[in-house]
């Protein structure tokens, strides 16, 4: 497989998973940026365990998921039912705190970063296939789980909270419990993805987890469509991939193009390109076609 394709596919998978990590809590209006801090914490922890304690990668990855989940759960005890703005503030604060801790921790490289993460599977080719396998396995697994969530009673409860919290509450929905569930899920996912993110680059640097990532995931979520899981799935490869094929002269305008695109989408199609309605229409069209095929 061409090396550039590997990087494109692996980073696209990371972007899909992390956009989903934002998508799930946003189903009940919570923009949970703590996920970026979770990536950082679990990533650095796994890097340290593999490099210095010689823990096998798989164990370090699992620890990454678990640590992400624990942090997400503990924080959700306090902000499980918090409004959007409060959750955003907690997320930003966590990113700052985590950055400061990492900056001052020489055992994980401090401001210099962490170098020389080993190849999983012993050689670069095996490393790439393993990383891709795990990432796309996660895409399928998480895609399935989120699909089930969206089509379950708790998914409908989340939709009710999105529309009107008070109304949802009066319908007997436990907002805090549901908030804790979605926040813990998104933090668990982010923890594991953070580990994989560092192992793609075979290094960790604080700026891998900068605020720019929030911009990327927000663009994927809002341009793709925040009301269905298909939005991020389709937007991530396009938004990340298309600029790579721009001619150099146009590449310089990449950020402007992103910005204009985001503004246009927010003004003209506030729910993003893929909406529930469009998913429903596509589903309907496909089922009619299938019906026709069966009849003929």
């Amino acid at each position: 497989m061409p090396l550039s394709l590997y990087y494109y596919l692996s980073i696209t998978a990371v972007n899909i998973l992390m956009s989903w990590a934002l998508y799930v809590p946003y189903r009940m209006t919570q923009l949970h940026f703590i996920t970026i801090a979770n990536m950082m914490i679990s990533g650095y922890l796994a890097g340290y365990l593999v490099l210095h304690v010689h823990v096998p990668f798989v164990c370090a990855l699992l620890i990454g998921f678990v640590v992400g989940g624990i942090i997400g759960y503990v924080v959700s005890l306090f902000i499980g039912d918090a409004p959007t703005f409060a959750v955003v503030i907690v997320g930003f604060t966590f990113i700052y705190i985590t950055r400061t801790i990492v900056e001052n921790l020489s055992i994980v490289g401090g401001t210099m970063g962490m170098f020389g993460l080993p190849n999983i599977g012993g050689n670069p080719v095996a490393h790439r296939w393993i990383i891709l396998g795990i990432l796309y396995g996660l895409v399928v697994l998480c895609g399935f789980l989120i699909y089930r969530f969206d089509h379950s009673s708790i998914g409908r409860a989340a939709s009710a909270i999105f529309v009107d919290k008070e109304l949802a509450s009066s319908l007997g929905i436990d907002i805090k419990k549901l908030g804790m569930l979605v926040q813990t899920f998104s933090c668990t996912l982010a923890g594991g993805v953070g580990v994989l993110y560092g192992f793609i680059y075979k290094s960790f640097h604080l700026d891998f987890f900068g605020f720019a990532l929030i911009g990327v995931y927000m663009t994927v979520l809002f341009v793709g469509g925040y009301s269905t899981q298909w939005g991020p799935l389709i937007a991530a490869p396009i938004l990340y991939g298309v600029p790579l094929f721009f001619p150099p002269a146009v590449q310089s305008w990449r950020i402007v193009i992103y910005g204009v695109m985001l503004i246009l989408v927010l003004v003209l199609k506030p729910e993003g390109f893929i909406t529930r309605k469009s998913v429903y229409s596509i589903g309907l069209a496909l089922s009619r076609k299938r019906e026709k095929v069966i009849r003929s």
Binding site: L3, Y7, I11, H205, F208, L244, S252
Partner: peptide
């Protein structure tokens, strides 16, 4: 080759360059 201060873009560009 513009990497735009972005590790994601930088890695894909380097992967192209080393070919």
């Amino acid at each position: 080759v513009d990497t735009a201060l972005d590790p994601q873009k930088g890695s894909v560009e380097m992967a192209r360059v080393v070919k």
